[in-house]
Design a protein around this nucleic acid. Structure first.
Lengths: 143, 143
DNA sequence: CATAAAAAGGATAAAAATATCTTTTAATCT
DNA sequence: AGATTAAAAGATATTTTTATCCTTTTTATG
């Protein structure tokens, strides 16, 4: 359902949520070991998230990646959409053509309810929610 | 969550459930177009299912794939396990090491309940259930 | 303004998943 | 027995995903 890339991206963003802000930018070099994602690959993922406005970054000396206050209000789904694309998430669990939430196949009836909830969770949970103790982020590390 | 291969396999088995029995074996050649899976690839998947005893087959003239009465009592999870392997299904949604249903990470708390239900559905739904109108299989074709 | 720091971008490589092709083995039917 | 049919098995090819490397551009600062 979620690609490894998306999982990596979420881990990276959670790290930023815990360790960065406008004044404390973070280098990929400092994240990748903690979250167990290859440095260059994590860089690529964060770059893409930044390009799409889901996270923030500045180049050059004293630069790095960080989360603005706005960024923290992003949902997990925002990350998923950037990395996996909307299609992957919304498409039929069974890969059946012409089948989606509105026009479900048998397997959807069986499984779709769960999937819908899963998607809603992703949509309704922000980075902030996760960090602000609504979920106990501590347990999340080491990732 | 489910690989394409597993989805293909489920489609193939459902076709067998609807169109085969001990006396009416079915050739891959007759299935693949209906379920929209490449012939040789579907053959591979069905062979594996047969080898693992989830479906039945005989070689040679009058041979083919079919579902015995026993086979029909198999759960969807049995198919998933053969094709994707147990690990893939049971492993952490987030790919976090040392995290599973018993020892869940944050994302598990968030998402795990849905996943558990999803798994239970797969475990508790047999081929027979799907075919015997407990689920309306007709809608399932064309796959 | 020079230099160093850091993300961005492009091109390539490796691995995994998906798919195909060819040969072998087993069953059935003259 | 021999011919034919069809799955099983093995080898190979393609595509997608994941990952790395190297160069370029941007920015801050001494």
């Amino acid at each position: 359902m979620l690609s490894n890339s998306t999982k990596y991206a979420i881990k990276g963003v959670l790290y930023l949520a815990l360790n960065s802000d406008e004044d404390h930018k973070v280098l990929v070099r400092d994240i990748f070991e903690v979250v167990h994602v290859p440095e260059a690959y994590l860089a690529k993922l964060l770059q893409e998230l930044s390009r799409q406005g889901v996270i923030s970054s500045t180049r050059g000396a004293k630069g790095g990646f960080y989360l603005s206050e706005q960024d923290r209000k992003r949902s997990l789904m925002d990350i998923v959409k950037v990395i996996d694309g909307e299609r992957r998430v919304n498409s039929c669990v069974m890969g059946i053509h012409n089948c989606d939430m509105d026009n479900p196949c048998v397997l959807h009836k069986l499984v779709g309810a769960n999937k819908s909830k899963f998607i809603k969770v992703l949509e309704n949970t922000t980075i902030l929610d996760l960090v602000e103790g609504r979920q106990d982020i501590e347990e999340f590390f080491p990732l």
